[in-house]
Computed example of a mutant assay.
Amino acid sequence: MWYLALVMMLVTLIVLACCPDVRRQFPVNFIVLVAFTLCEGFLLGAISSNYEQDAVIIAVGITAVVAASLTLFAFQTKWDFTAWGGMLFVFVIVLFCFGILCAIIQNKYATLAYSALGALLFSAYLVFDTQLMIGGRHKYSLSPEEYIFAALNLYLDIVQLFMFILTIVGHAQGD
C-alpha cells in the first residue's frame, strides 16, 4: 500500500505541477487534487506512526502556530518575498545536498541541523507562496485561474514544515 500511495502521490503531483490544462479544468482538477491529498495523507500517517504520539501532537501544534503566524505576516508585511524565488530554489538545492550528506554521516546533530534548516526554509517558502497567491502590490503573483496550483504549493509547504518539525520534536523527545 505504501509504495502504491507513493507512486500515486508522485504521479498526481507531476500532473498538477506540469499540466496547466489539467489543473485549470473543473472537475478534473479537484479529482486529481483529492487523489494527491489522500495519498499524501496516507504517507504522512505512515511516517508519523514511527514517532511517539506526544511528538506528533506537539509537532502538529507547533506547525499550526507557525503556519498561522507566517500567513498573517505574509498578508500584512510591506516586504516583498515574491522576488526571492531563485534564492529559495538555491537553498533547496543546498538543503538537498546537505540531506544526502546527513544520510551518509548518520549523526544526530547533523540530522537536527538539517531539520532546523529545512523548517526555516519551508517557513520562508510559506511566506513566498502566500504572497504569490494574494498578489496585489507584490512583484510576482499567480493568476486567479491557478487556485489549484496555489493550494498545492501551500499544502506542500505546510506538510514539509510539519515533517521537519516532527523530526526535531521526535529527536528532542528521544533524549
Rank of each mutant, 00 (worst) to 15 (best):
K108P: 04
T77F: 01
A110K: 04
K78L: 02
T71S: 05
I104A: 10
W79I: 12
W79Y: 14
F73S: 01
W79T: 11
I100C: 07
K108F: 07
A116P: 04
V94K: 06
A83T: 15
K78M: 04
C97M: 14
K108V: 12
V92F: 09
N107T: 08
L88K: 07
T111V: 12
Y109F: 13
L88H: 07
V90G: 10
C97I: 14
A110G: 15
A68D: 08
G99A: 09
M87C: 11
A110D: 11
L88S: 05
T71Q: 01
A74Q: 00
C97V: 15
F89V: 12
K78R: 12
A83E: 12
V90N: 07
A110H: 09
I105G: 04
A113Q: 07
T111Q: 11
F81Q: 04
Y109M: 13
L112G: 12
T77N: 02
M87K: 14
I104T: 03
A74V: 01
K108D: 09
L112K: 11
I93A: 11
F73M: 01
F98Y: 13
Q76V: 03
F98V: 08
I104E: 07
A74M: 02
V92A: 15
N107H: 10
F73N: 00
A68W: 07
Y109P: 06
I105T: 05
T77Y: 00
F75H: 06
A113N: 09
F98E: 12
F98C: 07
W79P: 01
F75D: 00
G86C: 05
D80V: 01
F89N: 12
S115H: 06
L72K: 02
T82A: 03
L95Y: 10
A103H: 09
T111Y: 09
W79S: 11
Y109L: 13
L70C: 06
A74W: 04
A116F: 09
A116M: 12
A68G: 12
F89E: 11
T111G: 13
F81T: 01
A103G: 14
L70W: 00
L112Y: 09
C97Y: 10
G85W: 04
F81P: 02
G99Q: 04
F91E: 10
F96E: 06
A83K: 15
Y114G: 08
T111A: 14
L72G: 03
A110Q: 12
V92T: 13
V92Y: 08
I93D: 04
Y114N: 08
F81W: 05
D80S: 04
A68E: 05
V92G: 12
G99N: 06
C97F: 13
L101P: 05
F73P: 01
I100A: 10
T82I: 03
G85M: 05
L70G: 03
S115G: 08
V92S: 15
F81A: 08
Q76N: 09
Y114A: 06
A68V: 09
Y109D: 13
K108S: 10
T77P: 01
F75S: 02
T82H: 03
F73R: 01
C102P: 00
Y114K: 05
Q106G: 10
G99I: 03
I105A: 08
I93V: 15
T77R: 00
L72H: 02
K78V: 04
K78W: 01
L112F: 14
T77E: 00
L95F: 08
T82D: 02
D80N: 03
L101T: 13
F98S: 08
I93E: 06
I93G: 02
L101K: 11
A74S: 00
L72F: 03
C102N: 11
A74K: 00
